[in-house]
Computed example of a mutant assay.
Amino acid sequence: MTDLRYPLHAAAREGRHDDLKSLLLCGLHDVNEATFELVRPLHEACFCGQYECAALLIEHGANVNLSNIDGGTALCDACCNGNLKIIELLLNSGANVNPPFLMTTPVHEAVFRDNWKCLELLSKHGALLDKNDCHYGTPLHVAAYKGYIKSAEALLKAGASPNVSKTHQTPLHEAARSQDLPLVHMLLEHGADVYARDSQGCTARQLVPCSTSLCKLYLQEWERTPKTLRFHCRMVIRRAVDVKKLKCPMQLNLPKILVRFLQFE
């Protein structure tokens, strides 16, 4: 049903490009008009994946960095939808990849929907990957809590730290609690601290609910076994280089074999 109070919003949300264009050209509507929740037409177009409407709104002067009542920008909404074309459009139109936020960030929104390709794009544009939101923690916490291994992999390869904590809880604690062995393995391989303790003084192993779980046994073995020189070399080099540039090794002047090693390939 068309919203008579906010015709621009309705047209943008429903992908009615021609109607939206007519409304913008008639001069009676503000392209940045806000609802009582500070939602703009551009937010609607991005959240619903309406690329042509989003492009039209920007062409007519829509502010790409205005936020809604929760602090979410159009880029946050585009990351919810996962439309890479809209995300690129926003970034190329001046959208802040690290906007001031109240509840969440574009990176968090992408992880919530397991839109891991969005994460790769955001990281290439300089997104901060280790910011805590007000609920889960960092985007990597979200990926661990949800069991989204593709998103976790994209974050780790882009340089997200596995040891940033939220109230002393790390992503490894989240993965261990759900006994997600592949995710636990990935976090440990990327340098997660197996000895880190949460606010109750528990390590990840102690949070595994089943005493005979393969996940608990794996964590126990990881605690007891000294790490190889190969493992330590990879960690030291990854800390020394800008891992965001590993997708473009020419920027780092590194041999391809070393890049593959650093990217766990």
Rank of each mutant, 00 (worst) to 15 (best):
F36G: 00
A55I: 06
C48P: 02
L42Q: 07
H43N: 11
C53M: 08
R40S: 10
T35C: 08
H29T: 08
Y51Q: 12
V31N: 03
L56S: 07
A54C: 13
H29I: 06
E37K: 08
A62F: 00
L57S: 05
R40H: 12
F36R: 08
T35I: 07
I58H: 01
P41N: 07
H29G: 04
P41V: 02
E59W: 00
H43W: 13
G27Q: 09
F36I: 10
R40A: 05
V39W: 06
A34K: 15
D30Q: 12
A55S: 14
L38Y: 15
A45D: 09
F47P: 03
H60W: 12
E59N: 02
L42E: 10
L57Y: 04
G49V: 00
E52Y: 14
L28G: 12
T35N: 05
I58G: 00
Y51D: 13
L38T: 14
Q50I: 02
L38Q: 15
E44V: 04
H60E: 13
C46R: 07
L28Y: 13
G61F: 00
G27P: 05
Q50K: 12
E33K: 07
L57G: 01
F47C: 07
V31G: 07
A45Y: 02
P41I: 02
A55F: 09
R40V: 03
Y51L: 15
D30R: 12
L57A: 09
E59Y: 01
C46E: 04
L42K: 10
E44S: 10
E52F: 12
L57C: 09
T35L: 03
G49T: 01
E33D: 08
G49R: 01
E33I: 12
A55G: 10
C46D: 04
A45G: 02
R40I: 03
I58M: 03
Y51N: 12
F47G: 08
L56R: 02
Q50E: 09
P41T: 03
H43V: 10
C26A: 10
A34G: 14
H43I: 04
V39P: 00
C53Q: 10
A34H: 14
G61W: 00
H60Q: 15
A54M: 11
A54Q: 11
I58W: 01
L38P: 10
L28K: 14
L42F: 08
C48V: 06
L42V: 11
A45C: 05
D30T: 11
G27T: 05
A62P: 02
C46W: 05
Y51A: 12
P41F: 00
L56D: 06
A62G: 00
G49S: 00
N32I: 12
I58T: 01
Q50C: 07
C53W: 05
Q50F: 04
A34W: 10
E44F: 05
A45N: 04
N32H: 15
C53D: 07
E52W: 13
L56W: 05
A62W: 00
L42P: 09
G61S: 02
V31L: 07
H29E: 13
D30I: 10
L28E: 13
V39R: 05
L28V: 06
V31Q: 06
E33Y: 03
E52N: 15
H60N: 13
A45F: 01
N32S: 15
L38N: 15
A55K: 14
V31R: 03
C48K: 14
V39A: 07
G49H: 01
C53E: 11
C48F: 11
